[in-house]
Amino acid sequence: MSATSCDAPRPFAEPWEAQVFAIVVALQDAGIVGTAEWAEVLGAAIRPTAAPEAPADYAHWLAALEVILDRHRIADRAAIDGRRDAFLRAAEATPHGQPILLENGPGPADHL
């Protein structure tokens, strides 16, 4: 194995990190999020007023992305919370090893 390949571990620790990254870059590629705006919002997300400075990890990318989506009136917190709950219900109703699909979930089906 070459030194450079040793030097390049997988960039994402979890699949959701890759999804967050890809969403942000896709929105940048689409011109919806500017690079300067992203740096500003991510920079703010990792500097909470009442807590120590945080790592610029993908959890904070997610927080910054939510700020951007709300700012651009693409998705507000209530919409995201509602959809998250639908996924949690769907997960609970999905047997192990099966894809977690929204339509598998019981309860409110406002997304259908």
Partner: peptide
Amino acid sequence: GSTLSPIEARVRAL
């Protein structure tokens, strides 16, 4: 039942 962590569910939602 399967499990999604809170952050996984949130990313799925977004």
